[in-house]
């Protein structure tokens, strides 16, 4: 996929908001299985409110049938547009067809579906491979040619974020022979496993032989930080730590100097989605079929304490 084109499309987010009075949008959310998802819901509500859009919210509690019901409900109510965070990729053709016949644009958020591209207006997602690549490139720049033995905490084995973030990171460090991944094991995206697996890395490699940790999400990194401390090392200095997601606790860890960098998986998918929808409804502008959200890099140079305070209230 062409990265530049999509980045350009993402820049639409910065365009001034169109005034949209009396607009009603339906939002079918997967559920609230993670802090990030809760934050996404909060941000979507905030985005709708700041634009004066009435948001009809439906929590599907992880069930596709609930989402399909919610979508049919939205269509019956004749909303102006639908935001859909699909729980699974397949089985959407019929209901998307119904929305299309009713002339209601559907925007996918955060995940894709296996359906014909003409059935939805656009999809707003992050690029998981790109996130990994940003992490790898950051580390390559940080090490500036110094040799570095990296340990990697993978996400749940076989899950697409784990596969893509691993691939991306490997791409990011591919041109740097000084960087080498010496151990890679799954920490199941959880704090507890992140800590356990980091303990084993520290034993097996020897803490002084590890120069950096790359974790597929912040929770595992936060767990690993504790393991590093208990091993008598200083996280952030003895072992550099880069992870993905930018949850509030990661900002706190960076502010405390215990972590070096995190790449944001923004909970603000609704911003670009509503921009595209408003432009489409106002002037019929067809957006790109894929809007990539920004994968922003946060390091110690940013005011992480301020971001932490800001994000804390989003429901992470």
């Amino acid at each position: 996929m062409t990265l530049k084109a999509t980045l350009l499309a993402g820049a639409v987010a910065l365009a001034p908001m169109a005034a949209a009075a009396d607009m009603t949008i339906g939002f079918s959310q997967i559920g609230s299985e993670s802090g990030w998802r809760a934050a996404e819901t909060t941000v979507t509500r905030q985005q709708a409110e700041s634009r004066g859009i009435e948001l009809k919210f439906a929590d599907a509690q992880q069930k596709q049938e609930n989402q399909i019901k919610a979508l049919r409900g939205f269509i019956a109510q004749g909303v102006d547009g639908i935001l859909l965070a699909p729980v699974v990729a397949t089985g959407w053709d019929d209901v998307l067809e119904e929305a299309k016949e009713a002339d209601i644009p559907v925007i996918l958020m955060d995940r894709m579906v296996d359906a014909d591209k003409s059935l939805y207006l656009t999809a707003v997602t992050s690029d998981l491979v790109h996130e990994g690549r940003v992490a790898g490139e950051w580390l390559a720049e940080e090490m500036a040619g110094e040799p570095c033995r990296i340990v990697e905490l993978q996400g749940t084995t076989g899950s697409s974020p784990a596969i893509d973030r691993k691939t991306g990171f490997e791409q990011g460090i591919a041109d740097h022979d000084n960087l080498e991944i010496v151990r890679s094991q799954t920490g199941d995206f959880t704090r507890a496993q992140g800590k356990v697996v980091m303990e084993s890395f520290l034993k097996a490699e020897g803490g002084e032989n590890i120069c950096a940790l790359y974790a597929h999400n912040d929770d595992m990194a936060v767990g690993a930080i504790q393991a590093i401390k208990e091993a008598g090392l200083t996280p952030g200095e003895d072992i550099r730590i880069v992870a993905i997601d930018a949850v509030p606790d990661a900002h706190l860890a960076i502010a405390n100097g215990e972590m070096n960098a995190t790449i944001e998986l923004t909970p603000n998918m609704a911003g670009p989605a509503l921009d595209a929808l408003e432009a489409y409804l106002a002037s019929g502008t067809e957006p790109e079929k894929w809007i990539q959200t920004e994968s922003r890099l946060y390091t110690g140079a940013d005011d992480n304490m301020a971001v932490y305070e800001e994000k804390k209230s989003l429901g992470y």
Binding site: R191, A192, K195
Partner: peptide
């Protein structure tokens, strides 16, 4: 013990 170990209660995974 599990919660104290990670200084947090993770209802989804604990």
């Amino acid at each position: 013990i599990v919660a104290a170990d990670i200084k947090g209660a993770d209802a989804n995974n604990a």
